[in-house]
């Protein structure tokens, strides 16, 4: 899997051969993620797309160590964070990697004021010396995400959906992380609000140079925000490359079907369009037999040699 290493910059996050299994019973194990490798450079946005059940959320949760990975290695900022971590490594991880969740109502404590929700991270890690400093940090961050300082004393239910997601972003940002894992963070929002949140995330990235792992199923939004994209299906990373490479030369039939299924808001084209059909069972492709093949540049496809000859 060395070929998947980036050659120019030292990557911020590197995932090598990650597997995540969930034993359900003695006989049955759900293999949610199988042999996934990718990297994220500092200041870059990596989009993970796939249908529900493809394992994209599991990857995000395994990276931030909400799960214990079954196999494989995860390097974050030069440290191995896949196995047992010492206290120092764990502290670094908990500070420098943050997560934004899908449903802003479900992930904010309804009985805490927004100020306390946002400050929880700096409370735990003792990042301030006085209460005055704490409230300054909170109002700074509120300002940054486009909320007003007086919002600090309100409760989550007093906000609209878009504002709540801003609180979720503020909570992640206050730690000044190097990587934010955004798990479907805009899918629960309305379209006009989605654009606001995505623009905000881009602005923050330009200002602070953090990296995003952007997990979503909406390809048009992923295309818009990501520098590079990984396509997942049934736990396998099938294709990865820059946004340009994936969208203009999709190689894997699954990627092709995914891209052909993006609704085009142009009625004259859309009415005549039929999505390319793809069925893993009848396609004759065996994901487990394939390995990553380089197409060009940073564009890799998971397949066997024979399959590759048929596709390119």
């Amino acid at each position: 899997m060395n070929q998947l290493q980036s050659n120019s910059v030292f990557p911020l996050l590197e995932v090598k051969g990650l597997r995540q299994y969930f034993p359900i019973s003695r006989r049955y194990t759900v293999k949610a993620v199988e042999d996934v490798s990718f990297y994220i450079n500092p200041g870059e946005t990596y989009g993970l797309v796939g249908e529900s059940g493809s394992g994209k959320t599991t990857i995000g949760r395994a990276i931030i160590r909400l799960y214990n990975p079954t196999a494989g290695q995860i390097f974050f900022d030069g440290r191995d964070i896949s196995g047992h971590m010492n206290r120092e490594t764990e502290r670094e991880l908990r500070i420098n990697m943050q997560m934004i969740f899908q449903d802003p109502m479900a992930c904010l404590n309804p009985r805490q004021k927004v100020a306390d929700i946002i400050a929880q991270g700096i409370d735990i890690h003792h990042r301030y010396h006085s209460l005055k400093e704490r409230s300054e940090m909170v109002s700074d961050i509120l300002h940054k995400v486009g909320l007003a300082p007086e919002h600090a004393d309100r409760y989550p239910h007093q906000f609209s959906g878009g504002q709540r997601q801003r609180v979720g972003i503020a909570r992640a940002l206050i730690m000044n992380p190097k990587l934010i894992i955004a798990d479907e963070c805009i899918s629960a929002l309305d379209m006009s609000i989605q654009a606001q949140v995505v623009n905000l995330m881009k602005d923050i990235q330009q200002e602070t140079g953090l990296a995003y792992l952007f997990i979503a199923h909406d390809l048009s939004m992923v295309k818009y925000i990501s520098d590079r994209i990984g396509v997942l299906h049934l736990g396998y990373l099938l294709e990865t490359g820059t946004t340009e490479e994936i969208f203009s030369h999709p190689v894997h039939p699954y990627t092709q079907s995914l891209i052909s299924a993006i609704p085009n808001p142009n009625p004259l084209l859309e009415r005549n369009r039929t999505a390319k059909k793809y069925d893993y069972k009848t396609s004759g492709i065996d994901y487990s037999a394939g390995s990553m093949h380089l197409i060009e540049g940073t564009h890799y496809v998971r397949c066997t040699d024979a399959e590759l000859d048929g596709w390119v």
Binding site: M191, S192, Q194, A195, Q196, V198, N199, K202, S220, M221, K223, Y224, F247, I262, N264, P265
Partner: peptide, 17 residues
């Protein structure tokens, strides 16, 4: 509404909101 949709045809830096 029409402007706020991500446009696959162009590479705008910002989405309209």
């Amino acid at each position: 509404l029409l402007s706020a949709m991500p446009d696959l045809g162009t590479d705008d830096e910002r989405l309209y909101t």
